[in-house]
Design a protein around this nucleic acid. Structure first.
Lengths: 115, 115
DNA sequence: CTGGATCCGGGACGATACTG
DNA sequence: CAGTATCGTCCCGGATCCAG
């Protein structure tokens, strides 16, 4: 199975960083999961994630939108009505999350009770 | 191919975080690559990574060691002689890095020129 | 040579209040 | 409801110096 050779390592760093930036952080995956679970309104998401503040939520949603993992739709209504949904594209993340999950699960066993 | 169902999502978060913690950050992968490329001494590693300070390098190496991705060997000599090498276990990371690399490469194209 | 000690700035994260 | 504004805290990481 193709081993990454050292020359490629440095070249691979940028894309890897891009990938990590898109999903790392305290809240991003939590929010992503909340939305994919059917929490589509701002307050709904906020309530479903204990401890998050509206400021942070707004910022993270903006970033997730930039990365096209979440779509923001504004409906013309009073009071304001905005809906957040996961994008089709975001499905492509699942294979990555699977890989992280698998390795992380094993890693957790190996390290056991650190941090 | 097995889709992650929503119940599993939250459960998967912890291992995913563990995985991300082990490899995310400004220097970790850079250091890991440097060591795997044959830079085994502290100053060697430091010189091979422009911009890193000895304090940060020391800290990151410690973390990489805790995660058992790098092994630290002290030789009894004067002056002090310490050798850093990658562990066999660290090879298991490559599949994860591959996944991140693949997705990140595509993602970069998709987002194009952000950040 | 291998790092620890100290000081410090900036960014991430948080609490609270407020606007349209 | 959907956010923004303001202020404050904490900690990562950087610079510099120094000790074993």
């Amino acid at each position: 199975m193709n081993k990454v050779d050292h020359k490629d390592c440095l070249g691979a760093l940028l894309p890897i960083r891009d990938a990590l930036d898109a999903i790392h952080g305290k809240w991003k995956l939590l929010i992503y999961i909340a939305v994919s679970n059917g929490n589509n309104r701002f307050r709904e998401i906020e309530r479903s994630i204990p401890g998050i503040s509206s400021k942070v939520l707004a910022k993270e949603l903006k970033e997730l939108e930039e990365h096209q993992l979440i779509k923001r739709t504004v409906y013309d209504a009073t009071p304001a009505l905005v809906e957040y949904t996961v994008t089709e594209y975001s499905k492509s993340l699942e294979v990555v999350l699977q890989a992280l999950n698998t390795w992380g699960t094993n890693h957790r066993k190996k390290i056991m009770g650190k941090r």
